[in-house]
Design a protein around this nucleic acid. Structure first.
Lengths: 131, 131
DNA sequence: CGGCATCCCATAGGATACTG
DNA sequence: CAGTATCCTATGGGATGCCG
């Protein structure tokens, strides 16, 4: 309870730093979830990911590919067709990801209430303007 | 398997958008985990969160407070002492969070290998420079 | 100790237009 | 269809310094 925190709790090379859902990847988690049901095409992914631009989707997909979460299979011959699929590594993330989403849905109301209350209570206090 | 994706899979007001570990909060998840063992003081939190600046820690804590994940209790009288603790909502996130971390540790080697291989394979291909 | 103020930069990511 | 190429902005977040 009052035991001191482990200074190495978040190691300089903390594993979580390698996770796709870490800071600076807004879409990675959603993309992975979209691939849960099997391979999907580029434009197919754009549907549920409403509002994502082609550029950003490409970026995210490339990053996920680079880090071994998805594979890319392109074909040009008869028609152009590119499919993205989860690697075993990527698929193994589905569990934890689903847990997170389940949590969010479960606490949906609380989240809304808390945010509303918090915004009101702390209103006017924007200690850090823009940097 | 080949069923079309639900266009509303990620609703415009998707619950996950409210999560603290979503895009743009590098530290939220780690902070919450630091509070698992009970209330912690400001400077106490800075230890495991190596390298975090006071400004950023304050920012993150304020955001977490605003969204109802943590509470802030300040005292100035004898000595200055501020304590941060998890709300029930915040505590309820510990589970999913732990699952994520467990996953990361479990796949630690794979992550390293995949990233290394991916970086090599896709080397030279930096389609998107800086904007 | 627990911040706040200020300056600064890197970059995620959106808008738009074009291509094989 | 599946991207690329540019341009642009918002902001996360680090550095440094000061304060009650």
């Amino acid at each position: 309870m009052a035991a001191p925190l482990d200074p190495d709790m978040f190691d300089p090379v903390c594993p979580t730093d390698l996770m796709p859902i870490r800071t600076g990847d807004k879409w990675a988690g959603m993309i992975i979830r979209c691939l849960e049901g099997g391979p999907r095409r580029f434009s197919e992914l754009r549907v549920p990911l409403r509002g994502i631009t082609a550029k950003v989707l490409t970026q995210s997909l490339r990053a996920l590919e680079r880090d071994g979460y998805v594979t890319r299979t392109a074909q040009t011959h008869p028609v152009r067709r590119t499919e993205y699929a989860l690697t075993p590594l990527g698929a193994s993330l589905l569990g934890p990801l689903a847990a997170l989403c389940a949590w969010a849905e479960e606490h949906w109301d609380e989240l809304l209430d808390a945010r509303e209350a918090g915004t009101a209570a702390l209103a006017g206090g924007k200690p850090f303007s823009a940097g």
